[in-house]
Design a binder for these strands. Structure first.
Length: 462
RNA sequence: GGCCCCGUCGUCUAGCGGUAAGGAUCCAUGGUUUUCAUCCAUGUUACAGGAGUUCAAUUCUCCUCGGGGUCACCA
């Protein structure tokens, strides 16, 4: 059984980079009918883990990703970690170190000054004497002194670390007894039955340490996949400073979950030339072996394109529901279909679409000065008057084609081009020169509102 | 600085010894549209550099350069 996990430290919300590794983990588990677990790494007690977990689950829910089983909180697993620390101590695989923080940082500084690598020299590794008074010891793992550790990574290949280069007897439990990151990760991944560790490649250099723990405890080593970072435009690791990294901010900005997931799955991963992936297709086709080795730069141009693609392909009743978050209650609007059909081709985001809807359904209060002057020149007002009369007199006015026929009649009778009526009418109806087809607009707002808007512009400009 | 990872159009990527280096996005131009957008068509732009190996390197090896990550009693 394939078991993956997403193990964020609680920073308060789910960000884009985290979401992508979560997505990869989720897809790989689902593809194999395995499990996708969620673990909150909240060993830092100062932070509020409750909120963070909620934010993450909310975001997952919005996106349609569901984790399996209960959420694991590291903060609630102290006894478990304590048990393994005791075991390692008893087996002589770990030991108490009485060096104080001050001593340690002093050592580090001298090493840095001498351009040596910073390293704990194992002062208490084989200590048997009487421990110094008044110092609570930290617990260190007895790491192997020489040889090498090979991280067999599904993306990077085999990465070799020499013990002498990177390893020392690192601390697995602090003086206050609380366990440290690299220790608990190894314990939890093992205990949770995680078989595939998919995470950011900033963790690659942690992996040998975790392997040391695995080996000390006799655990099976999982498969690792270290996915490259997402960088900002400056080429640096994406961080909170880089604007919209909160996943839920994308909901407010009017992005659809399908678009965001599609965008993220294609960032660093590909399947030939395919660009559009439904969640089902992702589940079927995703394979971490096709993840790129290099970091990718976060650039939302493609997200916009995907978003407009998904907006165009979303049924109107669903769009109407999605637009409710912008205060638009369209579900029972009688011209909903015409309205949404006319606007879904023109919006990059739902938010933008909402404002386009408002532009159509609201009587204009502002007229683009330059455009109005140009469009209302000559006999434009007279043409509008004639058209208005036809609208008032028409017996049956419902569909865009009904209005189109009236426009056509004016054009034919007055022997003018379509633009002669189109331009002034556009100003009257929308107050500016751009926008959806006029026949659609009139069908949506109806006869009375059409007449009102024409009268308004005539009043204002005669 | 030590260690590790990475390097194909601006961006996301395909490529897996022999290709006119493909797609997408962006941008530009043209067509469609009474306008704008959509849509369609066309176009500009890339193998970081240098040595090898080979009949043949974007592809394999090494070096250089460039970028990134990581080195805590943080996670």
């Amino acid at each position: 059984m394939v078991v993956t996990r997403f193990a964020p430290s609680p920073t308060g919300y789910l960000h884009i980079g985290g979401l992508r590794t979560a997505l990869f983990s989720y897809l790989w588990a689902r593809k194999h009918n395995g499990k996708f677990l969620l673990r909150i790494e909240d060993t830092d007690k100062a932070r509020n883990s409750k909120q963070a977990a909620e934010a993450i689950v909310n975001a997952f829910h919005w996106l349609g990703l569901e984790h399996d089983g209960e959420i694991t909180y590291q903060s609630k697993r102290d006894e478990i970690y304590a048990k393994y620390i005791k075991q390692l101590l008893d087996e002589g695989k770990a030991y108490r170190c009485y060096m104080s923080k001050e001593e340690l940082s002093e050592l580090r500084e001298t090493q840095m000054a001498n351009k040596q690598r910073t390293k704990y020299e194992g002062k208490y590794r084989d200590f048997t004497g009487t421990p110094p008074e008044g110092i609570e010891p930290a617990i260190r793992i007895k790491a192997p002194l020489n040889g090498e550790i090979i991280v067999r990574d599904g993306i990077k290949g085999n990465v070799v670390f020499k013990h002498e280069d990177i390893l020392d007897d690192f601390i697995i439990a602090r003086a206050d007894g609380s366990p440290t990151y690299n220790f608990v990760v190894a314990i939890d991944d093992h205990l949770m039955g995680v078989t595939e560790v998919i995470r950011g490649d900033d963790h690659l250099s942690n992996t040998p340490k975790q392997i040391v723990i695995y080996e000390a405890l006799g655990f099976d080593i999982p498969n690792f996949y270290h996915v490259p970072m997402i960088h900002n435009a400056e080429g640096k690791k994406l961080s909170k400073r880089d604007g919209a990294t909160d996943v839920m901010a994308y909901k407010e900005m009017g992005y659809m979950p399908e678009a965001l997931l599609n965008f993220l799955v294609r960032l660093g991963w590909s399947h030939g030339d395919q660009e559009i992936f439904s969640l089902d297709e992702m589940r079927e086709l995703f394979d971490p072996k096709n993840i790129n080795k290099s970091a990718s730069i976060y650039n939302t141009e493609k997200l916009d394109w995907l978003n407009s693609h998904y907006i165009k392909n979303t049924p109107n009743n669903e769009l109407a529901k999605l637009l409710e978050q912008y205060g638009l209650l369209l579900t029972s609007h009688d011209k909903k279909e015409i309205l949404l059909d006319a606007l879904k081709e023109r919006a990059k985001t739902l938010k933008e679409m909402a404002s386009l809807v408002y532009e159509v359904i609201s009587t204009p209060t502002y007229y683009d000065q330059a455009a109005a002057e140009k469009a209302l020149k000559g006999d434009a007002l007279e043409i509008l008057n004639i058209f208005k009369a036809k609208v008032s007199a028409a017996s049956e006015l419902h569909l865009p084609s009904d209005y189109h026929h009236l426009m056509q009649e004016v054009v034919d009778e007055m022997k003018i081009g379509f633009g002669k009526i189109g331009q002034p009418l556009r100003i009257a109806l929308l107050g500016k020169m751009s926008g959806p087809g006029l026949d659609n607009v009139m069908a949506i707002i109806g006869r009375d509102e059409t007449i009102l808007r024409i009268e308004n512009v005539i009043l204002k400009h005669s």
